[in-house]
Amino acid sequence: MQERDALLKKKVESTVEVIPPEQLKALDEIIDKYAGTTQNLIPALKEAQEMFGYLPMEVQRKLSVGMNIPAPHIYGVVTFYSFFTITPRGRHTIRLCLGTACYVKGAKEMLEIIIRDVGINVGETSEDGRYTLEAVRCLGACGLAPVMMIGEDTHGNIHPPKTIGILDGYQ
């Protein structure tokens, strides 16, 4: 338990150095745009995540002070919604659809292949920083099942054994 505690702390601390203060200034724009009510928290977090790729402690703290929303509240919101992440992402985000249609048509096999061959599980980033794997609940493209998105590109009607071949196109 204590080990895990230490790990958590380490994880939290390791993110501290990632964003230099001068870059955090960019958040002022978001704060100016959204400060006022908690109603704007989710859009503000979205923009901040677009800006930094993830929502580390400093970003959340700064938003907390700027928008006058308790930091634990922000952290609670960030960890509740699967769209947000507090760890940096890989260069390419694989969004594997695990919706029913895709599941029935082989997404499960694709997931197993990625876990086995790339070595990352859902929510993880590969050690070389190349991929982050996310499972999504339906991309709304069931006609093309199974589907995965890599970055902005949608790949549909994937024959599961070809998964790695598609990934190889993204370095």
Binding site: I42, P43, L45, K46, Y81, S82, F83, F84, V136, R137
Partner: peptide, 8 residues
């Protein structure tokens, strides 16, 4: 428009 953030 209120965007969601991924929670069923």
């Amino acid at each position: 428009i209120a965007p969601g953030a991924g929670a069923f």
